[in-house]
Structure formats: structure tokens, C-alpha cells
Design a protein around this nucleic acid. Structure first.
Lengths: 227, 227, 227, 227
DNA sequence: AATGAATGAGAGTTCATTCAT
DNA sequence: GATGAATGAACTCTCATTCAT
């Protein structure tokens, strides 16, 4: 009976199975319809009792879904941002990676958005270090460096997250097209106004042209996390 | 028993009362918690029977909520758009009016967003002439006129609506600040790139400077509706 | 649809039926076993839903049981006390009437005692004007009049109520014997010590010998209520 | 693995730990809420399995609680009674010792009372030699000796136990005051009526004045046990 | 136009217990 | 001696809806 995080391997596997079933139910039928009964049926469990055995209550299950998907997304996005060399490339990479992950795992992200849309404050979901907060810090840093123009970082973060989340709920999406458009859009709207006769255009994410304001090591920690 | 739309005045008043109660419940507790029981209690009705008496089923009630709020918003926004003289001013007016209405009637818009976030396709909500569709047409027209640059109108419409709806769910919002930021943001990102030595900047909504491409009458009908 | 207390006659009858069934279940099986399911089965109802239709929740049902039985007991005991002419006779009448009611309606009182023994403070049972409080006031008044000796009224009230309630839970009780014994016991222990050469003995309740300290009208209100 | 009563020392310790946890849960939350789950959580056990491992079923656990507390109380009370020289002093000592133990171990006695109030006959609690039975024998013996007047020993025993148990459930009790009052009360109500010109008053427990009817050795065994 | 009464289905949660090891 | 996994039954409560007036 090997134990890793205070739970046996068997228990971890069961929890993962239940979490996966919950994700699929939420993505397919919505947060409101995500009952233990539906999850049990979807996962092929004999009774709902197995769910309440492995999770303290429904909140803990939903929290596990959030933590799982958020963790997966972070592990996907973070290295791609770390690989960039400047703010504008990092912003492009952030959008690109988010939409790629969303393209590869549409149900998981849709479940996440459903939960955030459907859960109330009294459900006590803990989303420490929310993606929006991370984005705000990122924009602030870029403004200090002079890479970004003077906009309200909170507003911009709200719009950025709203735009990405909206894609998750859109039924038939051309992800490549959306990616290009959003990268262009947010580059246009964040970059510092060029000095006359100087018009650097952002090339698509990953092209790796030299940044004018290379990111300092000190900033690295800030944008590691994403939604 | 005077009749206007197939319903007596008394019945219309009752329906309005119930719709208002539903709006308040949804805005306060979320779409998921919006049961007949809650609505009845909130409205001070002795039983839920009164609700199912005036509405065929829950879908019809929710549909009535959507139609009511959407109608109110349209009647608020549309004249403010019609009063503008060019596309860019119209876009600014659209954003401004939306956020103004949202500021004046936060619960009503929040209820709307909750419904759209929480309702599923199988709930058969008919949102003919959706705000997003209107926005798409608007952007297309602006591109034909040469006022807007070449972006994907569907993506832009998605982002525009997502940004506005996000404000509705934000807890403590400085509406004036958000308005200014969003107007600036969407002007920046939609306007055609200036020819060299030519840089018209959008002045705040309502300033009424002469448009370069006056809107044609033929377009008028299209953007009348909003969210 | 005649209405008396905000409820139709039919609803009142249903509630009474359910309350009666609850009383019988509690008396027979204990407070802990008093589930909606048991009550429904005992009352011959098709589902528990009928119970939760007529009562807001389980607390309200239990509260209704308490109010019902307490009301019945009060209506039985109070006139018998009012008919007495002095404190000592009133005390005897109080005990006698309590045990008589208990003899005639053993299940109802047993249900009451079960509830008070089994319910916790967080169940929010409101027993304003508790029998113990009434007894305390009664003893205090008797002491002021000089009829009762100097004992702690709170302790005496606790013992008096405990003694009566204990009878309710005793399986095979000779009520007549218990009545005589308790009357004698509490008379002995409460009456003022006689002056030398003066030994008034209490004759059994209802014998109607002249009291030394006739109760004043002003006191009448105090001992109206019983458990 | 040393064995004393058919169980190893380790097993005995575990059982004692579980019994203690059960006592605390019952005293704090009531008999109805005393589930294996609550006990396990309170005792810091990882699962309820440990409880059902050490106890055949719930009845055995509750029986163990009763035996434990009853044994403790007996070991506390019995010597204090044995140290007295006559019936009336013994009665005073009985009350005094009971309330002292109750004062020192309020949760344990409260748990006991909760169990007796909440448990049903079908729970098969064996309380051989119940405190009430002991008290009956005690009163009978005192009557034979002429120390106690002619009352019904069963009624008196019921009242005595009810009075003591009631103190256990009273929230904020002045134990010293209650002790004095109860001693005085039960002395008054049990003692033989004095012959004219002869008025022996009971002095507080332990004063050790010579009894008129010294207890015979044959009675000693009877009143050893208490509740 | 309005209402009371009733209902079956399903929600999450708790329960003591059994089967393994 | 101790434990994890699993389970069926029962719990209170909420749901939208139907049948009567």
C-alpha cells in the first residue's frame, strides 16, 4: 500500500477516475447538471456512495476538478512562456499556449469555465493566485519596462481572460485563426506607441526576433502561472 | 379585462412581477438557485402555482427574463448609437451605453449573463438576433467602409461581448474608468492603420466630429439592436 | 376553503394527523428514530413528501409536536390550579393534574420528554415560558407569602419537574400511588415549619380544607401554565 | 502481548481511548449524534474500521461506555457511603458524593444520562443492579430500621435519581448549593416523624453523630453501588 | 385569475458494516 | 493489531409539475 500524498495509489486512481468523469459531465451537460448520480453513471460506478467515500463532499470534488485542470494548464503554458525572451513574445506565447491547450483539451477547459461561471462565493472555491491576478502583474511589469503603453492593467487583464474563456465556450472554433487574431489584437492594444519612423510589428509567436526590452531575471517568477 | 398582446393587463402585471423577482433571485443567488420556490418566496407569493399558472414552464419564464432585459437594454442603447455620425463614434457609443446601462441596472444584466452562462442548448433559449451577431455585422460594415482594419469580425465581436459581459460579473467596478479604457482599447484595435502623416484619434463618445465615411442609411437597421 | 390561522381546514387536519403520527412514533421508538419515513408509514401516507409539504422542515414539525402537547397539557392543568384556594392546594393540584394528564395521555407526554431529552440547543426549539420557570415563580410567591419554607426555588423546581417527567418514562406506573406519594413528598418538603403545637397536615388534593394563607387574586396569573 | 481480561494491554488501551472519545462526543453533541464517524474523527482515527474492529457493534461500545462510567462512579461513591455510620448520613453522603463526582467529571455523567435517555429497550443495554434498584433497597432497609418514615420506596428512589440526573443536564450549576439543598430536601422527606419533644436534625454529611439505628452488617452489600 | 394539495424523482450526505489484506 | 475500499439503506430536503377547485 504505497502512499504518496497521504492517499494510497488505489485511492488516487479512483479519485482521478471520478474527477475525469466529473469533468466530462460538466463539459457536456453543464455545472448545474453535475450530480453525483450523473458522475457515477458516466464513470460506471455502482453507486454514488463511492464518490462521497473518496471526497469529503461535493465542494471537495469540484475543488479537485479545478486543481487538476488548472495544474495541467499551468504545466503546459508555463514552459512556453519561460522560453520567450521578451514581454511581447511572452504575451503572444501566453495566448498561443492557452488556445493550444484549449484546443487539445476542450472539455477540461470548458468544465473549468462552467465551474467558475456556475459556482457562487458561498461554495468556497479557493483559487489562490488567480489567472487574472497573474495577468495584472504581468502587464504592470511590462509597463514599468516601457514595453507596454499606459493602460489600466486590471481592465486589460479582465479583457484578456474574458477573451480566452469565451473561446472555450464557443462551439465551432478555428483555433489557429483565433490564435492569430488574439495575438495581433492584444499586441496592438498593449504595445507602447512607436516613436515616429519606428514601427516594430510583432511577428507570430515563436518567431523569436530580438526584443527591445529583454526581460530581466527578476521578473521571471511573475508570469509563470496561467489559468 | 383589456387585452393588448393576448394577455389581460392584470396578467401582464403579474408576469412582470414574477419576471422581476426572477431577475433579482438570479442576480443574487445565481441561475442554478433560481427555482420556482425561491422566486415565489422572494415575490411574496403563497405558492409556486402562480408562476406555473402564468408561464408554461420554466423555459418560458427564463425566456421572458431574457426578452425583458434584452428589450430594455436595446431601447437604451439603440438611440445612443443612432445619434452618432460615424462607425468609430458608434462603436464608442455602443460600449459607453452598454456600460452605462449596466451601471444603472447591474442586477438585470448580471441575471442575463448568469442565464447565458448557465443555460444549455437543450433549454431551447431563443436569442434571435444575438448581440454577437449584431456586432459582427457592424464590424463587417465598418471594414467595407474602410474605417476598420482587416481583422476577423467574428473574433472581434466575441472579444467585445466577452469584455462587456465580464464587467457585469466583476464585483466592484469603476464604470467610468472601465468605459474609457474599453473605448480606447477597441478603437485602437479596430481602426484602420493611418496613412503616413495621418493620425486621427478618437475623441470621447458624443464629441460628434465629422466622420470620414458617413454611415449610409442602408446600414442603419443592422446595428439597432444590442445585447 | 375556510381559513382560521392562515391555514385551510384541510391543511390543519393534515398537520394534526402528521403531528399525531409523529407523537406515536416518538413515544414508541424514541426521538432518534423519528424519521419522516417512519411517520409517513405510521400515518399511512404515500410518501414523505407530504410531510415536508406541510412543514417547512423537521424542526417545525417537532416544534408543532411540542406546542400541541404543551397546549393540551396546559389547558388540562390550568383550570384545576385556578380552582384551588391556596398555595399548598395549588401545588397538590399541579402534581395531581400533571399525573392525571400523563395517565390519560401517556404517549403524548412521553413524546414530549423524549424530545426535550433528545433535542439539542442547535435544534432551536423555542419553549418560551418553560414549565420550570413557571414553577420557580410559583415557589417564590409561596415563600413571600410565608406558606413555603426557605429553600432554593430553582432547585425545588428542578426536582419537581424531574420527578414528574420521570414518571412519564417509567414503564408500569401506579399513577394513583405516585400521585399520593408525590403530593405528600412535595408538601412535606416545601411547607413552612410549623410553630410549636401547631401541625397542619395537608389532606389529599381536592379535599378543600381552609388554607391559612388564601391566595391573593394578584398571584393568579403566575401559575396558570404548566409543563 | 500480556493478557488480563482476554484482551491484550494494547487492545485495552485502544478500547479505553475509543470509549473516552465516545463519552466526549455524546456529552458534547448528544447520544443521537454519536456515530462511529464522529467518534473516529474526534479520536483522530483514520477510519471507523478501528472501532468496529475493537467492538462487536455499536451496542457493545455503548455498553462499554456505561460500564466504564458506572464503574468509576461506583468506585468514587461507595467508600464515602461505607464511611458513614447511619442511614441518614449515608443518604446525605450518597447525594453529596454523586454531585461531587458529577462536578469533577461532568462530561462522563452527562454522557451516561444522554445514553439512558436516548437508548431504547431494543438496544439491549444491560444495566444490571441499576442505581434505582440500589436506592430502593436502601430506602426499604431504612424503613425497616425505623429511620425512614413510611413512603413508597420506589417512588422515592425514582425522585432521588431523577433529581440527581437533572443536575447533570443543568447547564450552569452551583454544585455546592445544589448539594446542600438536595441533602436537606431528601432528609426532610425521608426521615421518620419525630416523637414529641424529640427533634434530631441532620447535620451535614460526614459530621458523624451517632445513629439511633446503627446499620447492620447484613445491609452493607446492598448500597455499595450507585449510578 | 388564482390557489391549495399532492407527488415522484432526485439531490447530497450519513450510517454501520463487510471484504479484503 | 490495524487499515483501506466499498456498499446499500436511509436520511432530510428541493425540484417542477399535475389535479383539483
Amino acid at each position: 500500500m504505497q502512499v504518496t500524498d497521504g492517499r494510497s495509489l488505489a485511492a488516487q486512481a479512483r479519485r482521478a477516475q471520478i474527477v475525469d468523469a466529473a469533468i466530462e459531465v460538466i463539459a457536456a451537460a453543464g455545472f448545474a447538471q453535475c450530480s453525483f448520480g450523473r458522475i457515477a453513471k458516466h464513470a460506471g460506478l455502482s453507486s454514488t456512495r463511492l464518490i462521497s467515500y473518496h471526497f469529503e463532499d461535493k465542494n471537495e470534488l469540484i475543488q479537485a476538478v479545478v486543481d487538476t485542470v488548472l495544474g495541467e494548464a499551468t504545466r503546459y503554458v508555463q514552459p512556453r512562456i519561460a522560453a520567450t525572451a521578451d514581454r511581447r513574445a511572452a504575451l503572444a506565447a501566453y495566448i498561443t499556449a492557452n488556445l493550444e491547450f484549449l484546443h487539445d483539451h476542450p472539455t477540461r477547459i470548458r468544465a473549468l469555465v462552467e465551474i467558475f461561471a456556475g459556482a457562487r462565493n458561498d461554495d468556497r472555491l479557493t483559487t489562490s493566485d488567480t489567472p487574472r491576478a497573474v495577468a495584472i502583474d504581468f502587464f504592470r511589469a511590462g509597463q514599468r519596462e516601457g514595453v507596454f503603453r499606459r493602460f489600466d492593467p486590471e481592465v486589460m487583464a479582465t479583457v484578456l481572460r474574458a477573451a480566452i474563456d469565451a473561446v472555450a465556450m464557443q462551439p465551432d472554433v478555428d483555433h489557429a485563426a483565433y490564435t492569430g487574431e488574439l495575438v495581433e489584437l492584444f499586441d496592438r492594444v498593449t504595445r507602447a506607441d512607436p516613436a515616429p519612423g519606428d514601427a516594430p510589428r510583432l511577428t507570430p509567436a515563436g518567431s523569436g526576433d530580438e526584443p527591445r526590452h529583454p526581460r530581466r531575471a527578476a521578473d521571471r517568477g511573475t508570469e509563470r502561472t496561467d489559468r
